[in-house]
Each structure stands twice: as C-alpha cells, then as structure tokens.
Design a protein around this nucleic acid. Structure first.
Lengths: 115, 115
DNA sequence: GAAACAACTACCTTTCAGGATACCACCGTC
DNA sequence: GACGGTGGTATCCTGAAAGGTAGTTGTTTC
C-alpha cells in the first residue's frame, strides 16, 4: 500500500483490500479455514508458491492477527486461523455473493443496438 | 490479475478485489457515490491522480458497469454510479465495519511479556 | 481567429510485488 | 558423520501497474 493518508471509510476499505487482496492471501486463508496446516502442507496446498513468498504472506497474515504460528520444535511449525481470522468468513461470504451477482450483470450485456 | 484459473468462491473474491482494489478505484467510487461528477471534478476530488490514470480507471469501472458515462457535448462529459454500482454500497459498508474492527484488534496488541 | 479550457491520448520512465534459484540451520537416523 | 527432510533466508530478476510530461481535438468566449 502506498496511500494510507486517506481517512475514514476509504482507509478501512483499503486495509481490507490489502489483507485479502494480492495473489496468495485468499488461497492461504481458504486453506487454513479448513484446518491447521504445516509449512510444507501449505506450500503443496496453495500451488505454485515459492517458499519466499509463502513466508512473506504468512508473516503478513500473522502480523495482522488473522493466523497464528505454533512452533513445537524448530522442525514442527504449524499455522492456524485465529478467531479474528475466522471473523473474516462472513465478509468473504458477502463478497462472494456480490461477485456472483456482478458476474451475472456483466455477462448479461444487452448488446446495445446503436442507432 | 494473473490467476483467474481458480474456481468458485476464490474467483468471486478475486473479481471483487480487482474491482474495488487498486490505488484509485475506491476513491473514485466513493466520490461518485456522493453525486454525479465531471472529469475534472473527479480529478480534483481524487487528489494526485493524473488524467491518464483517471481515464483508465474510469473506463475499467464503466466496463464493469459500476459507473456510467454521459456525454452531452465533447466537452461536457459526466460520470455517475449505475444501480449496479450502487449495489456495492452495502458491501463496502460491511468491509468498512470489518476494517474498523480489524484496526481495533491490531491496535490492542497486548505487548507480550516474553518470559 | 486566437486564447483558454475540457477531455482525452501517446510515449516513455519508474516502482515494486512476486518469482527463480540457491543456500543455511536444525533435527532424526542409519 | 553423511543423508534426507523441514522450515526457513539471501540474492538477483522480471513484468505489469502506476506515474510524468506533453500533445491533440473539439468548444466556448471574446
């Protein structure tokens, strides 16, 4: 994000966009909604992601308290959704609903017969 | 967007992110929610945006049927929210609500007293 | 008819999220 | 003590998005 200098609503919107936007965060959150995962589980789950990016995204989500990190031993780290992370679910639901409706609107282009 | 190859919910989420995400679209939509605006009104409203970018964003939003374009004369063009665009308002409301809550959560860091 | 404005448009540069690749530290085990 | 697996870092690179600057077309205004 570059412009956090906005105030009020716009700032909130941009914050949320930042959080669930981007290439990977949605997929990571979705994968963790399912259940707790270890680093390499996520790596396999999410697909083409490189460890560098995965770590970066996980740290970001952790910083934002959406996911938690559990380290039993240096080689046993797992990630899980926090309650705060789970509170995103209804919002994602709303977004999905609007997205669906939006696609309908876009697909039903009336093919204007220009005079 | 690069990966539209996802299916279902994730795809909807990404679509919506694409629409209201980015540096300017939120601000433009917010400005137009208020009332119809002319090109240079928007330019002043939104802030530092250059005409090139503004045009691009407006075209994108128009393509997505969120805003409409009204050209009375070549020098009298105005932009306005379509009904579909207005249907975004509740969603933006929900996002704002979660964003606010999120900021509270983030700001109330308990300053872990590490042992 | 030229100056001033509105609404674009073209061209070129910069920035930065994301990616490829390779490497490191720690552990168990054989 | 070499070997393989897990959980990372470090280094360099790329491409798309955003930005800067200037130009073009039409309009009104005098």
């Amino acid at each position: 994000m570059k412009n956090k200098h906005k105030q009020g609503q716009l700032r909130d919107v941009q914050d949320v966009i930042d959080i669930i936007g981007g290439r990977w965060r949605g997929a990571i959150l979705a994968s963790l909604c399912d259940r707790e995962k270890r680093f390499n589980d996520l790596r396999r789950d999410v697909g083409e992601i490189t460890p560098r990016i995965l770590i970066k995204e996980l740290k970001y989500l952790e910083l934002n308290k959406l996911i938690g990190r559990n380290e039993e031993a240096p080689t046993k780290v797992s990630y899980y959704m926090t309650p705060h992370g789970k509170s995103l679910e209804p919002l994602i639901g709303a977004i999905v609903a609007w997205g669906r409706k939006h696609r309908e609107v876009i697909l039903s282009e009336p093919l204007e017969v220009t005079p």
